[in-house]
Computed example of a mutant assay.
Amino acid sequence: MKAAVLFEAKTPLSIEDVTVSLPAAREVLIRTHAVGICRSDLHFIDGAFPHPVPTVPGHEAAGVVEAVGSDVAHLKPGDHVITFFTAFCGTCEFCISGRPSLCLDPSTRRPQTAPPRLALGDGTPLAPFLNLSAYAEMMLVHENACVAISKEMPLVQAALIGCAVITGAGAIFNDSKLKPGETVAVIGAGGIGLAAVNSAKIAGAGRIIVIDPVADKRALAEKLGATDTLDAGDPDVGKKVLAMTGGGVNYAIEAVGRPETAELAWAVLRRGGTATILGMIAPGKSVTIPGPSFLSGKRMQGSLLGSTQFPVDMPRLVAMYLDGRLDLDAMVAERITLPEINDAMAKLRTGDTTRSVVVFA
């Protein structure tokens, strides 16, 4: 099969012939239909976050099950599935307490003594990327790294649910538990931020303020439910949010991954408000919060994939799309082929595009 391989950080991806192993116990072989170009992948490709190489990046995908290994209980060939990169064991402390996105149990990975899931044509093993390696015509994953969905769901839009949408929506529904009439500021109008905006509208937010430097993204945020938009380049943007809301928002969602935007999320909160940090702040970077501001009862929390309970939340998001409440069509900026992936990465570096999606024939 064809796959986009990263041989070294800060170099272009290379389209290579790759071999995929047969599914072992509790593994599922998926024919990839669509995979989103996510900034998280770019962090690894550009070397901001270290990762073993060579590897096949990609982690926001949907496809159709081709084959299953032994002991697979809930999936069968022909099932349409969305993948997610935090494969969960189902039995550890985090899983049984309702936090499967935090599971790190090694039982979902292949033993080091077993053949690799993916390898180059000469037999060189490819390091697994976030349990998925989705920039490839096929994915071989643990059964608890994907969930079956309605076959009525278009797979291009379904792919976005695998990262951007569960993260943004989860920040509203799970992390914030936003109630009707409450206010929210979303910093960053990429895929994750836009999903948070749309979800805040579904949850009945009284005011949804979006902060982003790109005018086209602010316009798209308004289409998805933002009541107000502000230019992130305005040096007084924080003060403007406080003035607009009479003291700050109930919830702030940071979807950029920079210390200054995390600090802005804290600054625009009202007393007792909560800031949720979704962006990947690079190693070595720190967030600074004025000590006395803790006396205002504000909270800052981190979140991975919106604290999603995958087998329950993902089909619900599919249902929201099918009944017309969750708008995923507007988030797809362009559909591309695998050989165009480096051009899509270059667009992502500029910050001007929403979501490019690789669609396989």
Rank of each mutant, 00 (worst) to 15 (best):
N131M: 13
A119N: 05
H80T: 08
F88W: 14
F94D: 15
D105A: 11
C146N: 03
R117H: 10
G63V: 11
C95G: 08
M139A: 14
V64R: 09
S101A: 15
K151F: 07
A145K: 09
G98C: 08
V65E: 08
D79Q: 11
H142R: 05
C89S: 04
T113A: 15
N144F: 05
E137F: 11
C146H: 04
L132W: 08
I96F: 09
L140E: 11
V165W: 08
K151N: 14
A148S: 14
G78D: 00
K151R: 13
P111H: 03
L126W: 05
V65R: 00
F85P: 02
V81L: 13
I82T: 08
G162S: 13
A158Q: 06
A145C: 12
T108S: 04
F85Y: 14
D105C: 01
A134C: 10
I166M: 15
D122E: 13
G162I: 06
F84P: 11
A164L: 10
P106H: 01
G90C: 02
G162K: 05
G78W: 06
R117F: 04
H74P: 01
C103N: 07
P111F: 11
P115Y: 01
L132T: 12
L130S: 11
L104I: 11
I161Q: 01
P111W: 06
H74W: 14
N144W: 05
L126P: 00
C163R: 03
R109H: 05
F88G: 04
V141N: 13
T113M: 01
C89K: 06
S70L: 12
P125V: 02
L75K: 06
L102K: 09
A148V: 04
V141K: 10
E143V: 00
F84A: 06
G78N: 02
P106Q: 10
H142A: 14
F85Q: 00
E93K: 15
T91I: 09
G168N: 00
V81R: 04
G123R: 15
I96E: 13
C103M: 12
V64P: 01
Q112D: 13
S70R: 15
V64M: 01
T167Q: 11
H80S: 05
G123W: 11
C103G: 12
R109C: 03
V141Q: 09
L130M: 15
T86Y: 09
G63C: 07
A136F: 07
Q112V: 05
D71N: 13
L120G: 10
G63T: 14
E143R: 02
G162L: 12
